[in-house]
Design a binder for these strands. Structure first.
Lengths: 262, 262
DNA sequence: AGCGATTGTCTCTTACAAGAGACGCGTGTA
DNA sequence: TACACGCGTCTCTTGTAAGAGACAATCGCT
């Protein structure tokens, strides 16, 4: 799931699809719903995940019966179900870091007025696990659950701290190194960034995901040297040196607080 | 999943288990983890869901790769993964009622100091979808995601309002009618309770789940006559008539507020 | 009314996943 | 040292689930 089957035709995919395991189909369905973020008809779902209609009907029925999916109202559309919400809450309950991290992110964005996020690696991909929007008039886009190429972000540089170059290379595709504005990042530069971020204990990137923001990030450790998550602030790119410094200080402080008791 | 395969040997189950569909195994695994509420070794998991070890290993690997499960730390134990949390948040985002209901429950328990809950039907079973503990010294047990037989609760009586007797009968097993203290509820009485609750627009039960509490519940409607959820308060059984009345008033008010905009 | 597109259900075939079981490894304990 | 036990991986067989495709029903459009 982590890559290569949503982007389909890329690498060593069996072209004609042939026979696919039911479980895999289900995983694709869930992932598809996660990207669409809305209920969808079963027929379209089948098209979307490139699965036979008959199979899709069967699987969806199973999932609806199990409560992982729900039929939306009276239409023939499906979306995530209560069961998934309950399992998700179970995850939160079993995960101190996430629970406290969410709290801390909410605090931070309330105190600073800036957009704040908690980020983690999710099957080798950068993921915004929790976000709190801040109070600025222009809305900085960042939805929970969004997945972004690691090299585009400050958090990405911290999350990979301590990995070997080879490992890093394995987690970053060539496409990932191409920034939204078309510029191509050199892998070596990225690796250097990571090493630097590791030493300084924080990371700032300017105008990477878009030209108007910069991203401040600080690491949360689950064990000495092991970066489990990052907290970050997304601020306008013209934020003054002084304020940026303040925010970084605050951010590092809070991230450190999260680290200790884990 | 809703019934009949966890309770296993009951009805028309193939006794020897023979060959089981992978997806079903997965659904059982998730449900099992939901009940244990903690990470568990793969071997034990296999025993727990009564699946062959080799199969369990394969499935768990798929699920871990997909991020639905995570290996716990260094041990060989697994539990829910980040993906499930993300899907769960998607569900919340797509569900106004749940989002606002959680909020309202938190408010209510803060204002009254009592334990407050949001309850819904989940594959035909009563489920505590969100709970907020209240401030009483003795803790009233009620975990999010807990599933309880419908007849044990005030909310259950409201959630079934408007259904035919036959439908109700289908959703309530004989075991469900036996209260925790051993008393057996008559189905007819339960059906009568439901009809009454429907008319009065709220429901109070005393000493059903345990001898020391009573449960006040009010319905949340998704459409005229359709009870989508209930809000409820769990209070000490010796709460005065007067205060009980106040609380019911408050509860009905909030539940109504939830109903309107849905 | 006529037509194309979509929806939900069903049947039948065969490719393949579920499962049995063996194996090697590490660990505790007698 | 020997034994029992649990873990993780692998191989091989066969029961069966995934998929192709046909079908009737419904919908929307002209």
């Amino acid at each position: 799931m982590q890559d290569g089957n949503a982007s389909a035709l890329s690498a060593g995919e069996k072209i004609s699809g042939s026979r696919e395991k039911g479980l895999n189909r289900v995983l694709e369905i869930l992932e598809f719903l996660h990207t669409t973020q809305r209920a969808i008809g079963i027929g379209d779902l089948a098209k979307g995940v490139n699965a036979p209609r008959s199979t899709t009907y069967t699987l969806v029925r199973s999932l609806v019966d199990a409560g992982l999916l729900e039929m939306q109202g009276d239409d023939n559309r499906v979306y995530f179900g209560k069961k998934l919400y309950l399992y998700g809450m179970d995850y939160v309950r079993g995960n101190d870091l996430l629970r406290r991290g969410r709290q801390e992110v909410d605090n931070l964005s309330r105190e600073t007025g800036e957009t704040s996020e908690l980020c983690m690696l999710q099957s080798g991909r950068y993921t915004i696990v929790h976000a709190s929007p801040g109070t600025r008039p222009f809305r900085i886009s960042s939805a929970t659950g969004l997945q972004i190429p690691l090299p585009w972000t400050a958090s990405g540089r911290l999350l990979l701290a301590g990995l070997e170059k080879a490992e890093i290379e394995g987690m970053v595709s060539n496409d990932d190194l191409v920034l939204p504005d078309g510029r191509k990042l050199r892998l070596d530069d990225f690796v250097a960034d990571i090493a630097k971020a590791r030493i300084t204990g924080y990371c700032v990137t300017s105008g990477l995901v878009d030209a108007y923001t910069k991203c401040l990030a600080a690491p949360v450790f689950s064990a000495p040297g092991k970066v489990e998550a990052t907290m970050c602030l997304v601020v306008p790119i013209d934020t003054s040196e002084g304020r940026t410094g303040e925010l970084i200080g605050l951010l590092r402080d809070r991230a450190a607080k999260l680290s200790i008791a884990v």
